[in-house]
Simulated scan of single mutants.
Amino acid sequence: MTTTLYGITHCDTVRKARRWLDEHGVAYDFHDFRRDGIDRQQLGAWSDELGWEALLNRRGTTWRKLSDVQRDGIDAARALALMLEQPALIKRPVLDIGGRRVLGFDPREYATLFD
């Protein structure tokens, strides 16, 4: 099973997740949304599994910089289009452990997955 951590290199939460994985000897690949991008099919699958509302990062500066027109009345199709255009709008990290994806970082949850 290949474990992949998706996120943005300079995100504090991603750094915490990477540190946790390193300290617990978990082998993983890191995929940087900004550098490596994300394709529509994969993002759509995540949306189906996790829900687009959970996947859309409404707390970050990228969301706050969007116009009111872009934010108001957002639906799944518009959210996915925005996340593809601006990957920083994807909540992070996304941990892919093969048959399951985990959104965000919670050390207790990671411990149940790997320890």
Rank of each mutant, 00 (worst) to 15 (best):
V26K: 04
T4P: 03
G37Q: 00
R71Y: 09
D106M: 06
D68N: 11
L89N: 05
W52R: 01
E85D: 13
A54N: 15
I90Q: 06
A88P: 07
I38Y: 00
G60I: 12
Y110C: 03
R35H: 02
P93D: 06
L113Q: 05
A45P: 13
Y6C: 09
R40W: 05
Y6E: 12
A77L: 02
L80Q: 14
Q42M: 01
A79K: 06
F105Q: 04
H10T: 15
A27G: 06
S67W: 05
G37W: 00
G7P: 11
G73D: 10
L80A: 10
L56P: 00
D12S: 15
T9A: 09
M83C: 08
D72L: 13
A17E: 03
D32N: 12
D75Q: 07
F114M: 11
A111H: 08
Q86T: 15
I97W: 01
F105C: 04
R34H: 07
D39R: 00
R78E: 07
G60R: 13
G99K: 14
M1W: 04
G73S: 12
L84D: 05
L84P: 06
T3S: 03
L113R: 07
M83F: 03
M83W: 10
G99N: 14
S67K: 05
D22R: 13
D36H: 04
R108E: 08
D48G: 12
R108W: 10
D106C: 11
G60D: 15
I97V: 15
A81P: 00
E85F: 03
Q42T: 05
Q86A: 15
D36R: 03
H31T: 07
M1T: 13
G25N: 08
L84T: 02
T13P: 11
G104E: 12
M1H: 09
D96E: 11
P87F: 01
D29I: 06
R101Y: 10
V102S: 02
A76Q: 13
E23Y: 00
W20V: 08
T3M: 00
D115P: 13
F114Y: 12
F33L: 01
E85K: 07
Y6V: 11
L82A: 05
L89R: 07
L55F: 09
W63C: 04
D29T: 07
D36S: 12
D115C: 12
L43V: 01
A88N: 14
D36L: 04
D22W: 00
L55M: 13
V102C: 04
R71I: 07
D72W: 01
H10W: 05
P87L: 00
F105I: 06
D32W: 05
G104R: 14
V14D: 02
A27I: 04
L55N: 03
R15L: 14
R59F: 08
G7A: 14
L89T: 06
L80E: 12
G98Q: 02
V69D: 15
A45W: 05
A81C: 05
W63M: 02
I74E: 03
L89E: 08
T61I: 10
W52L: 00
R15I: 08
R92F: 08
A45I: 11
E109F: 13
D32L: 10
H31W: 10
P93C: 04
R101D: 05
D48W: 02
